[in-house]
C-alpha cells in the first residue's frame, strides 16, 4: 500500500479518486501531495515527522466524505489544431468525425501535474488513442488542446510539449490570483463544446 520514494516522501498506492486528498494535506508534518493516476506522493518535513508516522496517520484517516458532486465544466473549443489532419489520417476517419468523437465524450480530471494547472483527462474514446509527436514542439501556445495515448488535456501555459494538438480555447485554466489557482480540480468532469 505504501512505497518508499525519498527520505522526505512516500507513495500511497491507491487511486486519488478513492483518497481523501485534502485530509492527507492536513496530516501533521505533511508539506505537499502530488496525486497521479494510481498513487499519491506524500511529501513531509523530515524534521517534524517520519515515514512510519505518516503511514499510521493515513491508515486512520476518515474516509472521503460521500455525496459531494464533482464540478462539471463546459469548455468552448475551436477545433482547428495543427495536428488535426494527422490524427484524422492516422485513424482513417474524417476531421469532422475526430471532432464529433472528441466533443461527444465526457471526461474526468484524473489529476493535475506536469506544469501548473495542467489537468490530465480520462475518457478519450478508444478510436482516438494517438501516439505523442516523435519530436516534441519547443513551444506549445497556452490554451492548446492536445491528445497523447489515451489522455487528453489543455496546456494552461506556454511550454514545450509532445501532445498532438487538435484545438484551442480562450478559457483561462491557471490564475495564481484565484483560489484554487487551477480551474480544473481532481475529480471534476469536463465537456468540450465546439465553437
Amino acid at each position: 500500500m505504501f512505497r518508499y520514494a525519498s527520505d522526505q516522501s512516500l507513495y500511497l498506492d491507491a487511486a486519488p479518486e478513492a483518497t481523501n486528498l485534502h485530509a492527507l494535506l492536513h496530516i501533521p508534518g505533511v508539506v505537499n501531495i502530488h496525486p497521479a493516476y494510481e498513487s499519491t506522493l506524500i511529501v513531509f518535513d523530515p524534521e517534524l515527522t517520519t515515514h512510519e508516522a505518516i503511514q499510521q496517520a493515513v491508515l486512520t484517516l476518515p474516509p472521503k466524505p460521500p455525496g459531494a458532486q464533482p464540478t462539471r465544466h463546459e469548455i468552448p473549443i475551436h477545433y482547428d489544431g495543427p495536428d488535426l489532419p494527422n490524427v484524422a489520417q492516422l485513424h482513417s476517419i474524417s476531421i469532422e468525425r475526430v471532432i464529433e468523437l472528441h466533443a461527444n465524450a465526457e471526461y474526468k480530471v484524473a489529476f493535475l501535474g506536469f506544469v501548473p494547472g495542467f489537468a490530465y483527462l480520462k475518457g478519450l474514446p478508444e478510436l482516438l488513442k494517438t501516439p505523442r509527436l516523435s519530436s516534441p514542439r519547443k513551444s506549445v501556445p497556452a490554451g492548446s488542446l492536445g491528445i497523447a495515448g489515451a489522455q487528453t488535456g489543455i496546456y494552461p501555459i506556454s511550454t514545450p510539449g509532445g501532445w498532438q494538438l487538435i484545438g484551442r480555447t480562450e478559457v483561462t485554466l491557471f490564475n495564481p490570483a484565484n483560489t484554487p489557482m487551477s480551474l480544473l480540480q481532481t475529480g471534476d468532469t469536463v465537456k468540450f463544446i465546439p465553437v
Binding site: A5, I33, Y37, Y120
Partner: peptide
Amino acid sequence: VTEGVPLGAIQIPANGQPIILFVDQQTTG
C-alpha cells in the same frame, strides 16, 4: 504509469542520461 515525483528524484529519460529534478520541478513524471 505517470506518478508524483519528489524533490531530488533522479529520472532516466529515453536517452539514458540522468536528470535530477530540482526546486522548480514538474510535480509528476
